[in-house]
Computed example of a mutant assay.
Amino acid sequence: MMTLPELLSKTFTDCNRAGKTLGTAILIVGGISVVLSVLFLHVVFRSGAAEIGKILGPEEQANFEQYAWTATTNFGMQRMMDDLGTKMEAKFDGMTDEEQRAVVIPVLLSFASRVVPLACVFALLSILISLWQSVFFLLVAARGKGTFGGLSKEAFGWMLPMLGLNIIVGLLFIAIPVIAVFLGFLLPNILFIMLLVLVAIALFVYFGTRFALSSAILIQDRTGVVESIRRSFVLTSRGKFLKVFGNLLGAGALIGVIIIVFQIILTILSMIAEPFPPAPFVINQVLVFVALVGQAFIAVFTVRLKEAVAIKKRA
């Protein structure tokens, strides 16, 4: 089985070879994500400003609409919340708690009625985009060749099986903390709770590694959901478990560090650009594309890791 440096080198080579196809997908997916973010942000802040205007007046409504481009940074959000808190405190000065609730609750309900449906649509679109991109990145690695159009069309056909796989894995990973919390309530002992936390972490690592190759198997081997899980368990059994875990951990750590470095740089730049909206928002959106590059790399790496483990298994 190849070592981590060899797998990383091969992944870099394959990503470079498929750079045009991957780059096109990253630009399209990233562009759609940014557009959706802009639309969602616009509606949220316009709706929020409209509700604030009901309390503080139209002048403050226009003022808070300006935060749409600056509140995308932690500094900008903090400044907006401080500004809002100060003005709300002045507005409610002298009011009883009941009077404050009579003003605030209808406003919050009105805001929720505007934003919640949009948030649901946004979440659904985000899930669909995420499914498509994950399948597409795996297809690029699995097929080795193909046009963007051809792979895109094939990706749509694999979205439903990938969704099924994600649901199965997701339910398992949701069940682990739910059971741990339930047991913790039954026996609220600090030592027992610490033991539960350690067991939960161990289960996350174990099942995360055992399921790790299932998506690559699903796409590359054109299998069903259950069969891909079964094969993933076979390929990560016995002596190969630690090797798969170590390689995934190493690749994930590498990409994670790169993304964190970019995030720090972009955060500093967005803080510098704070007085020049919408520059902070634009700078923050660069991280969307950086994250997509990282996801594409991990997808290709996972397929190459699966191939290396499968070859070792046959040998």
Rank of each mutant, 00 (worst) to 15 (best):
Leu8Asp: 00
Leu292Asp: 08
Val44Cys: 10
Phe136Pro: 00
Val169Cys: 11
Met1Phe: 13
Gly19His: 07
Leu36His: 04
Thr209Tyr: 00
Leu213Asp: 02
Val104Met: 07
Asp82Glu: 14
Ile283Asp: 04
Ala18Val: 09
Thr3Pro: 14
Leu108Ile: 15
Val29Ala: 02
Ser130Cys: 06
Ile255Met: 08
Phe136Lys: 02
Val181Tyr: 12
Leu191Phe: 12
Ile311Val: 13
Ala180Ile: 11
Glu307Asp: 15
Leu191Cys: 10
Lys54Cys: 09
Arg210Val: 11
Glu154Tyr: 08
Ser228Gln: 04
Leu109His: 08
Ile264Leu: 13
Thr21Tyr: 00
Val38Cys: 04
Ile298Val: 15
Gly146Gln: 05
Ser228Glu: 01
Gly19Leu: 05
Phe233Thr: 08
Ile259Asn: 07
Thr223Phe: 11
Thr70Pro: 03
Ile258Lys: 00
Arg46Val: 06
Val293Gln: 04
Phe301Gly: 03
Phe92Asn: 05
Leu305Pro: 02
Trp69Tyr: 14
Gln61Asp: 13
Gln220Asp: 14
Leu213Trp: 03
Val197Pro: 00
Ile168Val: 15
Met77Glu: 14
Asn284Phe: 04
Gly149Lys: 10
Gly76Ala: 09
Leu172Ser: 08
Glu60Arg: 11
Val282Cys: 08
Phe192Pro: 01
Ser270Met: 03
Leu254Lys: 05
Ile264Gln: 11
Phe211Cys: 08
Ile272Arg: 13
Thr147Cys: 07
Lys306Arg: 13
Gly85Pro: 10
Gly150Val: 07
Ser215Phe: 10
Val282Gly: 05
Phe12Lys: 13
Asn284Ala: 07
Ile219Val: 14
Lys243Arg: 15
Ala155Tyr: 02
Leu172Ile: 15
Val286Leu: 14
Leu196Met: 13
Pro58Ile: 11
Phe262Gly: 00
Leu172Met: 14
Arg79Trp: 12
Leu163Ile: 10
Lys10Asp: 12
Leu249Phe: 15
Met162Thr: 15
Phe211Tyr: 14
Val140Thr: 05
Ile259Gln: 09
Ile201Thr: 13
Phe204Glu: 01
Phe301Gln: 04
Ala50Pro: 00
Asp83Val: 08
Phe173Ala: 08
Ile265Gln: 06
Thr267Glu: 09
Met159Trp: 05
Phe245Trp: 09
Ile174Ala: 15
Ile167His: 10
Leu128Pro: 06
Ile26Ala: 00
Gly30Ser: 01
Leu84Gly: 02
Gln285Met: 11
Thr267Trp: 07
Lys54Val: 10
Asn16Arg: 15
Ile167Ala: 14
Gly208Ser: 10
Lys87Asn: 07
Val226Ser: 10
Leu235Met: 08
Val244Gly: 03
Tyr67Trp: 08
Val309Leu: 05
Leu292Phe: 01
Met81Asn: 12
Gly76Val: 00
Ala90Trp: 06
Ile260Arg: 12
Leu287Asn: 05
Ala155Phe: 03
Ile264Cys: 08
Pro278Leu: 04
Glu60Ile: 04
Leu235Glu: 03
Ala119Trp: 04
Gly23Trp: 03
Val205Lys: 14
Phe12Gly: 09
Leu4Asn: 06
Val244Leu: 11
Ala71Tyr: 02
His42Tyr: 14
Leu287His: 01
Met80Pro: 03
Ala202Ser: 13
Leu163Phe: 13
Ala155Gln: 01
Val104Asp: 01
Arg17Pro: 02
Ala216Phe: 07
